[in-house]
Design a protein around this nucleic acid. Sequence first.
DNA 1: GATGAATGAGTGTTCATTCAT
DNA 2: GATGAATGAACACTCATTCAT
Lengths: 225, 225, 225, 225
Amino acid sequence: MKKREVQASVKDELLVRRRRSQMIRGAVALFKQKGFHRTTTREIAKASGFSIGTLYEYIRTKEDVLYLVCDSIYDQVSSKLMKDLNGKGGTLESLKQGIADYFRIIDEMQDEVLVMYQEAKSLSRDALPYVFRKENEMAAMFGKLLSRCTENGELELSEKEIDLIAHDIIVLGQMWGFRRWALKKRFTLEEYIHHQTELLLSGISKGKPSGQLNGQATLRGAPNS
Amino acid sequence: MKKREVQASVKDELLVRRRRSQMIRGAVALFKQKGFHRTTTREIAKASGFSIGTLYEYIRTKEDVLYLVCDSIYDQVSSKLMKDLNGKGGTLESLKQGIADYFRIIDEMQDEVLVMYQEAKSLSRDALPYVFRKENEMAAMFGKLLSRCTENGELELSEKEIDLIAHDIIVLGQMWGFRRWALKKRFTLEEYIHHQTELLLSGISKGKPSGQLNGQATLRGAPNS
Amino acid sequence: MKKREVQASVKDELLVRRRRSQMIRGAVALFKQKGFHRTTTREIAKASGFSIGTLYEYIRTKEDVLYLVCDSIYDQVSSKLMKDLNGKGGTLESLKQGIADYFRIIDEMQDEVLVMYQEAKSLSRDALPYVFRKENEMAAMFGKLLSRCTENGELELSEKEIDLIAHDIIVLGQMWGFRRWALKKRFTLEEYIHHQTELLLSGISKGKPSGQLNGQATLRGAPNS
Amino acid sequence: MKKREVQASVKDELLVRRRRSQMIRGAVALFKQKGFHRTTTREIAKASGFSIGTLYEYIRTKEDVLYLVCDSIYDQVSSKLMKDLNGKGGTLESLKQGIADYFRIIDEMQDEVLVMYQEAKSLSRDALPYVFRKENEMAAMFGKLLSRCTENGELELSEKEIDLIAHDIIVLGQMWGFRRWALKKRFTLEEYIHHQTELLLSGISKGKPSGQLNGQATLRGAPNS
DNA sequence: GATGAATGAGTGTTCATTCAT
DNA sequence: GATGAATGAACACTCATTCAT
């Protein structure tokens, strides 16, 4: 997938990568705290450890910083996810693990995800498509897992259903990030993973209570016999 | 629930209400289009049909407008919802209808919900708790429905599970608003409602395929018998 | 002639006129001293007697100030000139007086003319045509005077010659402004007028030494007999 | 005439000359297009074929570039002119040729002259006197020509008149450069030369219609007999 | 109660200049 | 002698807010 290139005045590619990584680290911290719009470019420069002039050697506009931040977070999340999901067979068990992996990644990158999630909409018209593509791509990863399960006869889902569930997984993962003010009071991460997985899988598995799949207590008190 | 009061210089309560309603209508249109931060107070005044000076007779700061907007949207959504849910008995069927009602409200108020959803985080520290409370309140409405079903023996859910599912419903509803770029290509509103309800209910109902509840084709090809 | 309108946020036309006149006065003083590019908008605001914010209520960009300045100077020069030239008959004597009037106007508005002359080129592509038109218009005034003299048989000039001489008059007038560092050491204004008029008229008049026209000493020591 | 020296860090005089000549070529092209103030030092460096660091090895400030450019143009114009004028006898005919030579030089170096003409005023206080001296020097060349004609009895002009006419020649030459937007529509260079020379010479020649001097048609239809 | 002119702190961005490599 | 990354003062312009009318 071709990215929207962010132009830098500095030629040294290595340096550009290094400086931008500083910049992203600094910017995420600030955006987290005060949001993109309330953060000034000067603050970003300072948090990145260089001057305002230097900042602008590596970007063209403030929005470039946001794009770089979002891009970097997506890349991190999806590369982690890809590593975890890669080669995952078409079993319900591996689907379950895939979901758990994803939720754990979200938890790890909580701040980043929150930032990306809340600020991405401030990207300009021409950067948004890239974000949508990235989101679709991530949903597609789960789509593939679900497809394989269907092919293996572990699930019986139409294309449409696969699509929807894939998006549901993505959103319920993000939900752990953006509703933590409500969820953290009630659930640990593992509880959250457990219950949501249960809900998703028992909702789609072929008549078998998913709880039996891994021997954990089912969501329902008593499995139907 | 006590609201954060927004101070007005004007005394005439009726006038205040009327002006603020104009203001909210204008502001929603603008926020929808360009977001809170990119909208100026002048634009809000103009879109509201009065001068900048008059605008400031009815608010104290620009943020007040955002608060008023969010507050109004919440009120509309939750009053509609309350009307629909009120007296809903403790049956799965009525739960299902409740979910469908909620999703349809979200669809109707798509723009408003999107605005509120994306801009609420720009509210200041002291307005946020109110938003959280409102969100909790709305989740609680579904919580109550779920409780009743459990009391009636239609569902078997723990407190925690009720909480989680209630939040899931809220979020999956919002998802129809904030992911419409992906969902509208694939689903009509009714399809979306159908599939999500199916997923949620078959995930929690006591061994009965939810599809049978209303005679529609089930999500799964063949119900377990 | 339609002008390029400079947009103001303020509605009150009278106020706009008053403020802009303050602004022009302030800006001319500054441009004279340091040129357009070295003058900051804040300096312009200060010199105009209002804040930077107020300045921008009456213009859109810094370049607007320059345009307003140039426009105003042109208007002053050409309206003065028009008043002086109006009804000037087709005699050499009146042509001579017209030239003298013009040179005196330039002298009066020395600073303004210098500013306009040196900074007009900084106007943007779409403002320049207006400046050219104004310059042509002014040249055309003298063109008309020369035409009348030709019609009356006082001069015998082709269209082309009229055009050139008209432009020469304009430029030799401006020259008094932009070369004053050289000319003021050697000439008073009246001397300058006298000599340049002599040169121009004896260069074109029909064989009669222009000096005899008004009884002044001729440029040449001895009239041709 | 002693020049304002522009300091270079580099010692090798030959290299300094070579680099500066590159620099001037690049800068003229840029100044022509966007003016001095809108041209950045980076652009100058790039157009000159070396880095910004190297640029500053050969100048001290950006203004030095402008000075170098103006200086170079003056030198070119005046050396060409000096070559053409050198040894020009004291006849009206040679004066005429001198004027034509000058106008043709201006035409050849149109862009450079325009640049110098429009940007010289941006030179700092201490560089301006040099420019004035150069202009005076050039006027003086024509002054000398006019003096010789007077000495030879071909013209009868006072010191003052000589001075004025010399400056007029310089300015009417520049006029061909800076008013080309108006003149090029109406005149070819040779027409312009012809008419302006005619005007200048018939304005000062001793009662003899200048047209007879070289057998060309006179400006006036009929010479006085 | 309504208006809109006035304000100025604050913002994103540029660019001449320096200096370590 | 050449390079180009780093710097930060300076700039044009915006906009929430106030207040005299």
